[in-house]
Design a protein around this nucleic acid. Structure first.
Lengths: 151, 151
DNA sequence: CCGATTTGATCTGTGCGCAGATTATCTGTG
DNA sequence: CACAGATAATCTGCGCACAGATCAAATCGG
């Protein structure tokens, strides 16, 4: 009945697998981000897409959803969904690209820019508190080798 | 219109924030785990709960769902849902605890133990490939400071 | 013993995350 | 021009992840 006597030899237990640690740490970090952004009525992904849209549009060349997804590292479908939520909140505006009627150009509204500014501060503060205990440069160095290219 | 000229001074871009890197790296790792476990018809969370249940029951003291959730670091509600799926697949069995009729004792079935053995190998292989490029001990050291206690 | 509180499991509802399919549009080649 | 293939956005459907509520059973103080 899988009572384990025969398992102890080849099943040493979860121990400290880097994968499990990575997973748990990120879930914890996500909860911290969620809490930091809740007062602004933003989820973490909504924040990432809003900030990414602002970043990409900083030189007057607002992106379409595919470009935004590539920058943010999110799925195209999910980007579509989340952007629709941001639009419903009035934080971004979508209009059909005059040069490609399939594509929708994404612009951050003034309200969106204002929320984003406050969100960036909240996220940076929460991030600093979360990563305070560790050597950030060292962690970034390790993660950059694992993060892979933006899809 | 938030075109960015006024933002460049105080919005330096996403850069390499450790939080974003952590998030992207974990999403990437999750996709690797998903692919590694797909042939066994298991998701990553299902694997974690199955393996955790086996681990906790290794000495003939099978856990209830709260204990399992604590070990696996998952939400109690989600643990309930996922365990129901594992039960539907015949990989675990649930029975009411005779000493506490609210609680359900979770046992890994022989079929579940067999799948778990193969899954452990698949996950360890995929993990080794994923974390190959980096110093695992260093990464584990950093993550352990951030992972927090199991809730 | 009894009411108050706690605990174990589940439900509703929202929001990612992703696979697979769909529709409309664009682009390249003959 | 025509048509094959690629691309942008969206849809269905499943499975986490979590907040908040529900309900029954256990436990504790009096």
């Amino acid at each position: 009945m899988a009572d384990g006597q025969d398992l102890n030899t080849r099943f040493s237990g979860p121990s400290e697998s880097p994968g499990l640690l990575l997973w748990r740490t990120t879930m914890r970090w996500q909860r911290v981000m969620t809490a930091a952004l809740a007062p602004l009525d933003l989820t973490h992904v909504q924040f990432v897409l809003l900030a990414s849209a602002m970043w990409l549009g900083r030189n007057g060349e607002p992106p379409n959803q595919v470009q935004l997804a590539a920058q943010a590292g999110t799925e195209v479908k999910m980007t579509s969904d989340v952007v629709a939520r941001l639009e419903a909140k009035g934080l971004i505006a979508r209009e059909t690209d005059p040069r490609d009627s399939r594509a929708k150009v994404i612009r951050v509204t003034p309200a969106g820019a204002a929320v984003a500014q406050r969100a960036i501060v909240a996220v940076e503060t929460a991030d600093a508190a979360f990563f305070g205990p560790v050597d950030e440069a060292q962690l970034v160095g390790l993660l950059q080798q694992l993060a892979g290219e933006i899809r």
